[in-house]
Nucleic acid binder design. Sequence first.
RNA 1: UCCCGGGUCGUCUAAGGGCAGGACAACAGGCUUUGGACCUGUGAAUGGUGGUUCGAAUCCACCCCCGGGAACCA
Length: 567
Amino acid sequence: MSEPKGKGEGQENAPNFIHDLVREDLRTRKHGGQVVTRFPPEPNGYLHIGHAKSICLNFTTAELAERGRCHLRFDDTNPEAEDTEYVESIREDVRWLGFDWGSHEYFASDYFEKLYDCAVDLIERGFAYVDSQTLEEIREGRGDFYKPGMNSPYRDRSVEENLELFAGMRAGKFEEGAHVLRAKIDMASKDVNLRDPLMYRIRKVTHHRTGDDWCIYPMYDYAHPMSDAFEGITHSVCTLEFAHHNPLYQWFVSHFDFDPMPWQYEFARLNLTYTVMSKRLLKRLVEEGHVSGWDDPRMPTIAGMRRRGYTPAAIRRFAERIGVSRRDSIVDVGLLEHALREDLNATSPRTMAVLRPLKLVIENFPEDQEIELEAPFSPNDESFGSRRLHLTREVFIERDDFMEEPMKKWFRLAPGKEVRLRYAALVTCNEVIKDEAGNVVELRCSWDPKSKGGNAPDGRKVRGTIHWVSAKHAVDAEVRLYDRLFKDENPLDEALGGDFTSRINPESLELLEGAKLEPNLGARGPGERVQFERLGYFVVDADSTPERPVYNRTIQLKDSWAKLAKR
RNA sequence: UCCCGGGUCGUCUAAGGGCAGGACAACAGGCUUUGGACCUGUGAAUGGUGGUUCGAAUCCACCCCCGGGAACCA
């Protein structure tokens, strides 16, 4: 079923070795042609773009099978850091990305009883024992990379004694640290993870779902494979750092009669340039106030990206295009931005907004006159419709669109030069008004009344077209310009020295008050996305109100002038 | 000093004994009432050394480099 990947043109389907191998399993009717995957976050933080890759991978893998399904399972086996707040944000984020787990929402904590029973079973069969050494003794006994471990003096306790102690642990008879339950595997194994790993520890902590029902909690290494098996997971997909756990994963499930028997597959986690992805570091950014919160539009969190104006489609497209492999990599954030622009370009209505206004007065335009113009919301898709704009004597243009002493190849406005006000008219700059400090405060221009709509009456070429907003009709707004959070491609590069926070881009946020919007932009609600022509894609922020609109810049348009100007 | 992964254009990734291909980025040109979008074109890579072979990115040997691994975290 895996088609030979032809050379040359049109490799629309991104390489994905997991999909390849699942297709092969489907072809051989492994698991009776069923594919069940799961996305298993621990509810102890917010999801980020790295999780998005995993979410996309797990859900699309399940879609390969006719009746495939992907579960959402909360891996809540460590009550310490977990909270329902995170459970809810995770649900919201996965749903927002466009995936549906149907009724298949599970919690590892729902399996506590079952996991306990299986542990008892392992004890009875001599595969697990209660160890009463201290933390330090256990650590010491494990050995190191070069030295094998040593058996615990408690390793050969009788089944009866183990059973009694384990029951006592559950009943709360012992203090934290007094005993643990360990799998009896091999203390001399070269794989340190196989040196009698812990299965249960005593933790007298309230769990966000089970409250104080339990004072012993299963470890990931035991709970995870078992939970997969309980749910009938066929392909357990995780990131590379769990590869060392695979033998242990197999060890646990192979001691029971599961059908299907799950298998773990690992892929390389996502890293992106100009950001950090670890929960620990993201937490620091929030707690130290470098950003406004987990949903700060500069954060690589799903919540942050949503607020920034990212679309689910762009993120999914990105995940598809970067492929899935086992090589450590740092993906150029440009790839993400490309996917974003691609989607936004196809879906965003075009509008005009002036971020840094400069007043332009059309001297030969009567004070009380207004010319109504029809402007389409899309240059090439009529279904977007259109809106009415009004040309008036005074308009605002972008400060950046005027240059008193133009550089070569400057097509925009300059003294004596003619430009097109988009959809409106051709204007020529006659005079530059300055304040005492020498700042340009106003442009006096004249227009060609025969150019209404922006067409040159005599067919003369006018290279520059700039955006504008009628001063009389403009809506004032706050605009937040976001840029990459870090100045360096890899903020964690140790060669750079210092802490990663020292590499935060000081220009990652610029607040603009008094931007001038065309009227229809004042009435849009949070989450609505538009293009401000020639500037970029913007989204209405959650803080926005009709009285005080707030727009976030999602991403700039590609700007070849900026590149030209730099040289 | 041990174990497990992994090394292909600047980046991500194909080809797995037979033309090193695609996407992003870059560069050049075309078109354009967004210096946008779109279209065309160009440059750009198999970690090293040996070996097997008519032929090696691919197989073998040795070496080098990178990532992960010794939590009562996940």
